[in-house]
Simulated assay, not measured.
Amino acid sequence: MEAATASSLGRSGAGLRSVPGLARSSSSSLTLRDARRRSLTPPHLPWPASRLVRTSGAGSLSVVAAAANPHNHQQQQLGVEGMGVAMEPERGSPGEVREEIARCYELVRRLGRGAVYLGSSRVPPTHPHYHQTAELARETSKLLDCTTWTGAGPGLMDAAIQGALQAEKPVGGFKIGKEAGEWTASNFHPYLPPESYLTCRFFSARKHGLVDAVVRNSSTDKTAIVALPGGIGTLDEVFEIMALIQLERIGSALPVPFLLMNYDSYYSKLLEFLNDSTEWGTVAPGEVASLWKVCNGNHEALEYLAQFYNVPAGQRNYHTSPPSKEHVTSYNVS
């Protein structure tokens, strides 16, 4: 496990910078509607197209390839006899990973630290958790006046982006070429300006960027980690960040609020398991509770952040909807 260090990155300027083309009411601003309609010319590929990992094997294997048209983000399936070619970059040297981490740090330095959202890429826009996430991101970005950071993927990551755009606050992201739920070779976000996100070759670099985005070295820094309902990837990030906080290796001089959003009791079984771990003696009593705040709804989460950062009552003007009474057990994703 690699921990981000605060000494390698500082904030530029006195305030948070707006993402070019995203913020506020200037002539260069990008509203939510504009963001959806904007057609972008993708930047250069993050690694040479010739660097593909070949896997041997008999029979016909499918290869995921990007469409020739850079504006077409639909994946193509190509049959290959006798071998498979995966869109995964080889690790040529440790220097390549270090260089990508440095680019992640630079993006954080340029856009400003803020709230990082971890969540499932499989949740459709019609799901209540999608709407709850968009609402939470909108109100949190206004409450903390901060940048919203995600993995720049679909599902709940996209919901957080939508909420921040509604609040006209800056957005940043660290995309990976292949996300669970979409499994596409596209390296480009469908509507965010390319200068507001980085497509990472390496998961380790992506994690470094997301961790560094919440580091607090000054009392003026207002950041947060928000864990939304998610699967294997989300749990991987959640427990890594928990361990970094527990071992004081997150690289933050000041404490960072960590919220676990238990929408519709999504994480209740996980919390029961952690309680059982305490009974087994593998987790110390009260250890897990000291690392995060479990929230069942958006109002509870916003109130916790407001109290954490001593936001005056008169400035707590967030607007939240009552929790859905419909108990949802599945995202109904094929």
Rank of each mutant, 00 (worst) to 15 (best):
F308M: 06
G251A: 00
S8H: 08
S204I: 12
T184S: 15
V63M: 15
A160W: 00
G59I: 02
L32C: 10
N310G: 07
N187A: 13
L165W: 00
A301T: 02
K269G: 13
S60Q: 10
V80N: 07
L244C: 07
H129Q: 08
D221S: 02
G151C: 02
L61M: 15
P323M: 07
A180N: 09
S28K: 13
N262W: 05
A243W: 03
N332E: 13
A6L: 07
F202P: 05
T278N: 06
E272Q: 15
I250E: 00
L254C: 09
R24A: 14
I232S: 13
L274S: 09
V294G: 04
H208S: 10
I225K: 01
L302S: 01
P20W: 05
H44G: 08
A68R: 15
M242A: 11
A102M: 05
S8V: 02
S196W: 01
R54Y: 13
N298D: 09
N332A: 15
D276W: 10
V64D: 10
A167E: 04
S28Q: 12
L143A: 04
E135Q: 15
S56H: 14
L107T: 00
D34N: 13
Q166M: 14
F273L: 14
D34A: 15
K293N: 08
N298M: 06
P323F: 04
S265P: 03
P190V: 03
A86F: 14
L228R: 01
T278A: 10
I101K: 04
G119M: 04
D276F: 14
V283F: 13
A180C: 14
S321M: 10
K175Y: 04
P128H: 06
P43W: 11
E96T: 09
A313H: 13
H189A: 04
V256I: 12
A185Q: 11
V238S: 01
L111E: 00
